[in-house]
Deep mutational scan, measured.
Amino acid sequence: GATAVSEWTEYKTADGKTYYYNNRTDESTWEKPQELK
């Protein structure tokens, strides 16, 4: 099967917290998305 390329990108805020942003859905989350686990 084809490997899905994750749409999630990991970013850090100014105070060093990590969050994740999805370019396709324009969604952001503090929790690590399922695709990255």
Rank of each mutant, 00 (worst) to 15 (best):
E31T: 09
Y19M: 09
D15M: 05
K32T: 09
W30T: 10
T9P: 00
E7Y: 07
T29P: 02
Y20V: 00
Y11F: 12
D15Y: 04
W30L: 09
Y20I: 00
G16M: 00
K37D: 13
E10G: 00
Y21G: 02
A2R: 13
T3G: 13
T29F: 08
T9Y: 09
K32L: 09
R24G: 07
A14G: 08
L36H: 09
L36M: 11
G1R: 12
T9M: 11
T29N: 03
K12I: 12
T25K: 03
L36D: 09
Y19A: 04
K37P: 10
T9S: 10
T18Y: 09
S28G: 11
D15A: 06
Q34V: 10
E7W: 08
N22S: 02
R24S: 12
Y11V: 15
V5G: 11
T3P: 14
K12M: 10
Y21I: 08
S28E: 10
E7K: 03
Q34G: 11
E27N: 03
K12P: 03
K17A: 05
E10I: 06
G1P: 14
Y20C: 05
A4R: 10
N22H: 02
S28W: 15
Y19N: 03
N22K: 01
A4G: 15
E35Q: 08
E27V: 06
N22R: 01
D15F: 04
T18E: 08
K17W: 04
K32Y: 06
E7I: 07
T18R: 05
W8F: 02
E7L: 05
T3D: 13
V5R: 10
G1D: 13
R24V: 15
E31A: 06
G1Y: 12
A2W: 07
E10W: 04
P33G: 01
K17E: 09
T25H: 01
T13L: 04
L36N: 08
W30M: 10
T13K: 02
A14I: 12
K12F: 06
E27K: 07
S28V: 15
G16A: 00
Q34M: 11
P33K: 02
A2Y: 10
Y19T: 02
Q34K: 10
K37F: 13
T18I: 14
N23R: 10
V5W: 12
T25Y: 03
N23C: 15
Q34R: 05
K17L: 10
Q34L: 15
S6Y: 09
Y20H: 01
